[in-house]
Amino acid sequence: MNAELLLPLIGIPLVVIGFALRFNPLLVVTIAGLGTGFAVGMDFISLLETFGEKFLNSRQLTSSLLILPIIGLLEHYGLRERAQQWVASIRSATAGRILMLYFVVREASAAMGLLSLGGQAQTVRPLLSPMAEGAASNLHGDLPPAIRDRIAAHAAACDNVALFFGEDIFIAFGAVLLMAAFLKENGITGVEPLAIGLWGIPTALCALLIHLFRLSRLDASIAKEIAVWQKSHQASQTNQSEAEVKA
């Protein structure tokens, strides 16, 4: 195979290596984009113009400016506490079950094009994470900071993974249209957005099953870690009491 045809794909191994080494994602993507641009013969000025154009066309600055103050105001008046209290009243609710339900809804809605139905700022932080944390607190009592952070991380991962794989099914999604246009520009015909969306379904189903399996083990893992924490906490209190008695 001609090496000149493979050279523009240099960005793919750069992204894989950068993510595997846990470098800054923004830095990795930027370097991969620069490497790809230089590989196809673009000059530095053209690359900067392309980066700037894509940034201006894709940013949603106005939405962010509107969402953040609203969410902050709702949290100030007790949105997180209300969500925790409501979940605590549901006896069958657990952190894993709540996250599993959200994952299914998020991926299904993203597949239908409802990309703004969820989100880190407007749903995960003020609602999903407190609800999952409240369910765990209702079962186990006071939670250590490490468990709270872990539940918050799982909540954020649910939104990211479900959106990432669900949106590829939606045929009007920008990435799907970009792939179809790129293939046509390079002489590969017969690949329509509908076909790309259909081929995204198996990957989305695999992501769904894998993540639901991980979340199904979350409750047992939390219970085990809390039991260990409670034992160590009780042991430290006992040692402290004995030390005070001896003193």
Rank of each mutant, 00 (worst) to 15 (best):
T50A: 14
R106H: 06
P69I: 09
G37P: 09
L183N: 04
E81K: 11
V104F: 15
S216H: 11
L6C: 04
E81Y: 08
D149K: 10
I45W: 08
V245C: 00
A121E: 14
A162D: 06
A88H: 06
G72I: 04
G187E: 08
L5M: 11
F182D: 06
G119Q: 09
V161W: 02
Q84M: 15
A235M: 11
G187A: 05
S232W: 05
I151F: 06
R97M: 01
F173E: 15
T50Y: 06
A111W: 09
I201F: 10
L139A: 10
A93N: 08
A146E: 14
L27N: 03
F165K: 02
F213W: 14
S129P: 04
G119I: 02
N138I: 00
F164D: 02
M131T: 08
E244C: 04
F19V: 11
A204F: 02
T50S: 13
L209F: 15
L14F: 08
A93L: 08
A243M: 14
D142M: 07
P144M: 06
R214G: 00
L34N: 00
H140K: 07
I17N: 01
V104A: 15
D142A: 12
F164C: 06
A204I: 07
I10S: 10
G52Y: 02
A172Q: 15
A157P: 01
E242K: 12
V104G: 00
S64Y: 13
A175P: 03
L205Q: 03
H211N: 08
L14P: 05
D219Q: 08
H76Q: 13
I196P: 06
G141L: 09
Q60F: 10
K54W: 01
W86S: 13
A247K: 11
L163S: 14
T203Y: 07
I210K: 00
Q84D: 04
V161M: 11
L14D: 05
G78D: 05
A155K: 05
A175H: 04
L212C: 13
P8M: 11
G11F: 11
L5T: 10
G187N: 04
R214N: 13
Y102H: 12
A132F: 07
F164T: 09
D159E: 15
R214S: 09
V105Y: 01
R217F: 02
